[in-house]
Each structure stands twice: as structure tokens, then as C-alpha cells.
Computed example of a mutant assay.
Amino acid sequence: MQTRQRRISGAVVVAACGILALVAGCSSSTPATKEHDTKPTASRSADPDSPASPRTSPADLKPVPSQRLRGYLLATDDLGPGYTQTETPDDEKAADPHRYDDIGMSGCPALEELGKHSDEVQFAAKTSAGFTFGTDSELGEELHSDTPSKLSSGLRRLVHAQTSCPTYTMTSGSTPVTVTVHKDAAPSPGPDAYAFTTTLNGPRGTSVLKTAVVRRGNVLVTLVGAPALVDRHIKAAVAKLPSA
């Protein structure tokens, strides 16, 4: 069976990110911070590591508004030659909130159970970007923000559900795809750093995608795509996040 990379969209994204795609990210719609929340205020706009806010502790950090969150995304200059940006933060405004309605999962009780309580793992703000490398490889990035405690608990719950079932079945329309997941070494020190590789076997062949997720303070970053690209750029993605 032929192994190849596919575009990071639709069924592939959902399978690669599992419940992350359906309820908290990976190109799904999550509650965005309201426009009035993006206006500077003394308590919300100050950078936690700036001299103007010396008493801010990680537990006190508030969600970063989506508009400001976009400044922490990777850009082609960060990635190097050969990359083309295919998705910008503004693209999600036009995304169809029902585009995953025909995608389902079976054979993984943890994912199915978490899907029933998706409202419990929604984060306050989100932004994303996508890139291609060459003709077949793609890299997708998402940033989410909320209070550190909510990000931490939500992320642990999401990743546990995703990696609790080594194999399950996903359907895209009426087409079954067998999904196999295995854990990888954490991409960064700390309790909220995870990585796993997803293999998708379906009528069109086999695809292998890697997902790496790291939380720093009130922001978490997710990279998903060709395993070599995720491994190469996860450190740069984490380095662009605000200091915790």
C-alpha cells in the first residue's frame, strides 16, 4: 500500500488530532475572544514578563486575545527556504463550522465520551496558520490561549483521550479509515508537553502525521504534519511563545 503525505485538512486533520479537531482545535471552530477583549487594559494587555507587570504570576495570567495571539505564530521567515504559507489567521473567519459534520469515530470509548462533553474543553482564544514544503509535505500550526490551569487540565484530558486507544475507526462520509496512534517522546520539558504519531489507512493509501503540543503559561501551541517537519520546527514554535 502506498504511503504518502496528504493535505492537512478535512478527515486527515480530524484523524491526526482526534478529539482535538472536533472540540478544541486543529482547524475546528472554538470560541474566539470578543473584539472588545482585544483592547488594551491594565490587567489583560500587559506582557507578563515586562517590567510593567512584575507581580504577575503564572496562576494569574489571563487569556491572550486572538488578535495578539497571531503575533506568536510561525512565519515563513522562521521556517527557512522552501516553505509557502497556505493558510493565514484570517482564513478561519470564513471557515464553515459544519465542515466536519460527516466525520465520526468509533471503537474508542474515551474519544466518544469526551465528544459528549466538548463544551468542557473549549479554550478562550485561537489562531492558526498552515504551510507547505515541497509538493507533498504540509505543516499546520494552532495557538490557543486561556488561563494556565484551564489549558493544562483541558490539554491533559484531550491528549489522554486521543492516546488511550491504539486503534480506532474514523468515517469520512461513508468511507472508513483505520487510525493507529502511538505516543512519542515529549517535545519539550515540563508537564504539559505531548507528542504522538497517527497512521491513517484508507482506500487512498496510508498517511503518517505527527502531532506535538506544548503549553507555556497561558498559551499552547500545536504542530501537526509530516513527522520530520514537526520535529524540526517545534522548538522554534515554542520559542515564539510569550515567557511564562
Rank of each mutant, 00 (worst) to 15 (best):
residue 3 T to C: 11
residue 5 Q to H: 15
residue 9 S to I: 07
residue 10 G to H: 05
residue 15 A to I: 01
residue 15 A to T: 07
residue 22 L to D: 02
residue 27 S to F: 13
residue 29 S to L: 14
residue 31 P to S: 04
residue 31 P to A: 05
residue 44 R to K: 14
residue 44 R to I: 11
residue 44 R to F: 13
residue 52 A to G: 14
residue 60 D to V: 02
residue 64 V to N: 05
residue 67 Q to A: 04
residue 72 Y to H: 13
residue 73 L to A: 04
residue 78 D to Q: 03
residue 84 T to F: 03
residue 88 T to E: 15
residue 90 D to P: 06
residue 92 E to I: 10
residue 99 R to M: 10
residue 100 Y to D: 01
residue 112 E to L: 12
residue 118 S to A: 13
residue 126 K to Q: 15
residue 128 S to K: 10
residue 129 A to G: 07
residue 134 G to P: 02
residue 145 S to C: 07
residue 146 D to I: 01
residue 147 T to S: 10
residue 149 S to V: 12
residue 150 K to P: 03
residue 156 R to E: 11
residue 156 R to D: 11
residue 158 L to Y: 04
residue 160 H to D: 15
residue 169 T to I: 02
residue 175 T to F: 03
residue 176 P to K: 08
residue 177 V to E: 00
residue 178 T to F: 02
residue 180 T to F: 08
residue 182 H to V: 09
residue 192 D to A: 07
residue 193 A to Q: 05
residue 193 A to F: 00
residue 194 Y to E: 07
residue 194 Y to F: 05
residue 198 T to Q: 03
residue 199 T to K: 08
residue 201 N to E: 13
residue 202 G to F: 03
residue 205 G to A: 01
residue 208 V to Y: 08
residue 210 K to V: 08
residue 215 R to D: 04
residue 217 G to L: 04
residue 226 A to I: 09
residue 231 D to H: 05
residue 232 R to K: 14
residue 234 I to N: 07
residue 236 A to R: 03
residue 237 A to R: 01
residue 237 A to S: 06
residue 237 A to C: 04
residue 240 K to M: 01
residue 243 S to W: 13
